[in-house]
Design a protein around this nucleic acid. Sequence first.
DNA 1: TACCAGGTAAAAA
DNA 2: TTTTTACATGGT
Length: 272
Amino acid sequence: MPQPFDFALTTERFALFGHDPANVWAEGRLHRVLAGRETTIAPAPGGAEVAPPEAELAEPVRRLLGAGFDLPAFARFAAAEDPVLARLAAERPGLRPALVPDPWEALVTAITAQQVSLRAASAIRARFVQAFGRRHERAWAFPTRDRIARETPDRLRALGFSTRKAEYAIALARAPLDLDELAALPDHDVKAALTALPGIGEWTADWFLARHLGRTSAWPAGDLALRKAVGAFYLDGRYPTIAETRAVGDRLGEHANVAAHTLLAALRRLPA
DNA sequence: TACCAGGTAAAAA
DNA sequence: TTTTTACATGGT
């Protein structure tokens, strides 16, 4: 892994909001299914170690752990332009945005998290994964798109989805859209393609850019927690409008994604 | 018991 | 065009 890198800081968000059967964080290690096989990702000197060791998994794991982000450039930018971020980043060196490897999983995860607390979303999603996914060892494979395409809203409703969210997930599963091809498009076109689907608004598309594609300038300006963080760290606690929050992101340019993750991590450490 | 929590779309004004 | 409302669950 490129340095700096802190495994615990980078992966802690998989453990903070409840148990996720598709991303099991236990004893400082992350267990999940990659390329059809359960993989254990563990901290190691200089980066992370993958078990079972497979060369073909090295790149996906590096990507999952945020290897693509330029933290030294972020630190230089913050030192020169943004004392707030410079302090928050210095307090958590090696924090990288951890990515969701699969686009379908990233979108369904975001849909479940719309409007409700992340703890509530996590509980609902855990039931969804265990109802429709496949069990490996410690981790479950996230339910496949094909499987959900054949489900009915009532079956998702029974797991705690609202009727709307159940319809969104099934519509996404059935949509004639190759989610892997989105990676080839610029940010704006990805957002246009996704927001054309029912139940996917700007917030959901922004998190897809940030947490699946790992786009460096992704900045979910509509996000409640990010707005709270911007208010807490830049505005003396005043809750900003979406436009004000977007303006902060614009100033961050290619560092917005790392900055957003830094701000959200810092917000969690703030006195309630 | 209420109310809020990392939104979205449809109805009402 | 802008504002208001319904939505389902978990935590406090």
